[in-house]
């Protein structure tokens, strides 16, 4: 047989597996900030449209120096933490009840489905009447806003726990409480933590909205005031603080996931 020409089989199996590239995220931030700064300095972007990032940073520094940052931030964090932790603890408790008991499921699941889609911010005026214009209404808005997604995440997490594991527990004569505590709750934990992620961002959104009514201090109040005075640098400083809170919350939940779900 005559020698035929040889050719290497071309590789065509790569791709479709995005990997983590270090510092790429930071680089994107930096590039945007630099372009933005250059654009505003050269006059290509007028100050009315966007302030310079350096001005926004200046506003932030000013906020720290005047001591107002601590006041705004502490007011906001108290509302956020109180509202969110009440919301998710009630939510997890209700979700567990709906996940475990027929009566709770039949009685409450439809109610949850009916109340979940209501934008809680629309109820803020009612909350003001019920819980007072001060902290009560703001915490209530965050509480109700985070409650329902947590309930739903929790009971669907429980529904999805591997039935064969529950059956295993029963076959070894484990008590009801042991099955719930050692099999059902850990099994639902990934879904519950995913729910926490969502409810944390909902809480921050609702915080700002709630602080726009009748709040003296708070990041939301600060942003509202800056906006009405057209102090766009201050407005951006406020937004940067919110973004920071969001990042820290996400990081905290990430840590919790790494701890609770280390078996994955």
């Amino acid at each position: 047989m005559p020698p035929t020409d040889k050719k290497q089989v071309p590789f065509r199996g790569g791709g479709f597996a995005p990997k983590k590239v270090r510092f790429a995220g930071l680089a994107v931030f930096a590039v945007i900030l630099i372009l933005w700064e250059l654009g505003t300095r050269s006059g290509f972007i007028t100050p009315l449209v966007l302030p310079k990032p350096s001005e926004a940073f200046g506003a932030l520094v000013e906020l720290v120096r005047s001591g107002l940052l601590v006041k705004h931030l502490s007011a906001s964090l108290v509302r956020l933490i109180a509202g969110w932790s009440l919301g998710v603890s009630l939510g997890v408790a209700l979700g567990i009840a709906i996940g475990l008991f027929s009566l709770a499921r039949s009685g409450l699941a439809p109610l949850v489905s009916a109340l979940f889609p209501i934008p809680k911010i629309a109820l803020l005026p009612l909350f003001v009447i019920w819980f007072g214009i001060d902290e009560g209404s703001k915490i209530a808005t965050i509480l109700f806003g985070t409650l329902f997604p947590t309930v739903i995440a929790t009971y669907s997490g429980i529904d999805n726990v591997d039935r064969s594991l529950i059956r295993m527990g029963q076959s070894f004569g484990l008590s009801w409480a042991s099955i719930v505590r050692k099999i059902i709750l850990p099994g639902a934990m990934p879904a519950i933590l995913a729910g926490f992620r969502i409810s944390a961002s909902i809480a921050i959104i609702l915080l700002v909205a709630a602080e726009m009514i009748g709040a003296e201090y708070g990041i939301g109040a600060y942003i509202l005031m800056a906006g009405s005075l057209m102090q766009t640098d201050q407005l951006l400083a406020g937004v940067a603080i919110l973004s920071g809170i969001g990042l820290i919350a996400a990081w905290g939940i990430g840590r919790a996931e790494a701890w609770f779900l280390k078996w994955r």
């Binding site: 064969s164 594991l165 059956r167 295993m168 527990g169 076959s171 070894f172 004569g173 484990l174 008590s175 042991s178 050692k182 099999i183 850990p186 099994g187 934990m189 779900l261 078996w263 994955r264």
Partner: peptide
Amino acid sequence: TYIFQDFALLPWRTVRGNIALVLED
């Protein structure tokens, strides 16, 4: 006492923990 086809081990417990599970009660 059962031995299941799909093993039915708790993924969040170690080998020791899975055995301890059925003794803890």
